[in-house]
């Protein structure tokens, strides 16, 4: 039996369903290349905006061992698209399947970044509407369905490159936001971004993060991510591909996301370790083992299995 891990996300095909999530190991072309060479299907850059941003002061990333999770408040630190373009060009030269995560403080900035990068043959642009670590214009864009619709619609006419929308879990009705993105013309929905979180040191009585508040990723949020993907699949079915993200630490977690309705997954926190190559190898082995046991030829057959 020939098993195929090749994964079709809309019009995009990648060699397996494992994608490096934005925000981990995505600051430079060299770590992104390294993670593709480690065996992932594709990689996503750190979110890139119109201008250079230093982000939030340290502490801005630390682990929470008890719950195998990480809290961060990096706050969209990035060099701006004009400078980061050089890194993307190297990735393109290396034929690394790359998705560029972009953000803006408003519609105009989203447009500027997309215009500045749309000539590059990237797999997709992932619209980061949902970073919880900044105080841009009050509420996050991703919690406002009107704004989501308007931005996606405007970007849609500017490029043929697929647009993925990364959803925030920090809303009461994710279907409403997702529907606005689909109506605006996005190609894929990605769920979920980090959960709003905070850690206070009881000795100094101080929030530990320099920005005080942050976002939680890692094993603690996996059941939340599974629920969002399940809800989205229940609503949209095969109408739009879903990518599951949040707390994947082992191969079984990937299968779980696929069963919930995801076509592919993004993996971040568990790859931010000393030996990410080993993690990728373990994921791959587990997926193959599951497919063999279940007599599945093509990974796509797993998608949505929990709804049958």
């Amino acid at each position: 039996m020939i098993m195929s891990l090749a994964t079709k996300i809309g019009n995009v095909t990648i060699r397996n369903p494992m994608i490096l999530a934005s925000g981990v190991l995505g600051t430079t072309y060299s770590t992104l290349n390294r993670m593709y060479e480690a065996g992932l299907g594709a990689v996503i850059t750190k979110s890139i905006g119109a201008k250079s941003r230093a982000g939030n002061p340290n502490p801005s990333v630390f682990a929470l061992n008890e719950i195998r999770s990480v809290i961060n408040s990096v706050g969209l630190a990035n060099p701006g698209y004009q400078i980061f373009r050089e890194d993307i060009e190297i990735l393109m030269k290396n034929s690394t399947p790359t998705i560029v995560s972009i953000f803006g403080e408003n519609k105009e900035e989203f447009k500027e970044v997309l215009e500045g990068l749309k000539d590059l043959p990237v797999l997709a642009f992932e619209l980061n509407f949902s970073c919880p670590n900044t105080e841009m214009g009050g509420a996050q864009i991703g919690t406002d369905p009107d704004l989501v619709y308007k931005i996606v619609k405007e970007l849609r006419v500017k490029t043929k490159t697929p647009l993925w929308v990364k959803l925030t879990p920090n809303v009461s009705d994710v279907i409403e936001i997702a529907s606005a993105a689909v109506k605006g013309g996005c190609d894929t929905l990605v769920a979920i971004n980090t959960l709003k979180a905070m850690v206070i040191d009881i000795h100094t009585k101080q929030p530990i993060l320099g920005f005080k508040k942050g976002g939680l990723s890692g094993a603690a949020i996996k059941p939340v991510g599974i629920r969002y993907v399940y809800d989205l699949y229940e609503h949209f079915g095969d109408e739009i591909p879903l990518i599951g993200v949040g707390g994947i630490f082992k191969g079984e977690d990937i299968i779980e996301y696929l069963l919930a309705g995801a076509t592919a997954v993004e993996i971040g926190t568990s790859l931010g370790v000393a030996y990410p190559e080993n993690m990728v190898r373990f994921f791959q082995m587990k997926i193959k083992k599951y497919m063999k046991e279940q007599q599945i030829d093509s990974i796509g057959e797993i998608t949505g299995g929990a709804h049958k």
Binding site: L25, G26, T27, T31, N58, N72, P276
Partner: peptide, 17 residues
């Protein structure tokens, strides 16, 4: 460095990653 444990990659060097 931000994290110190390999996640953020702000300390990464090119071209090896």
């Amino acid at each position: 460095m931000r994290c110190g444990f390999g996640a953020c990659a702000y300390c990464a060097v090119d071209p090896t990653g």
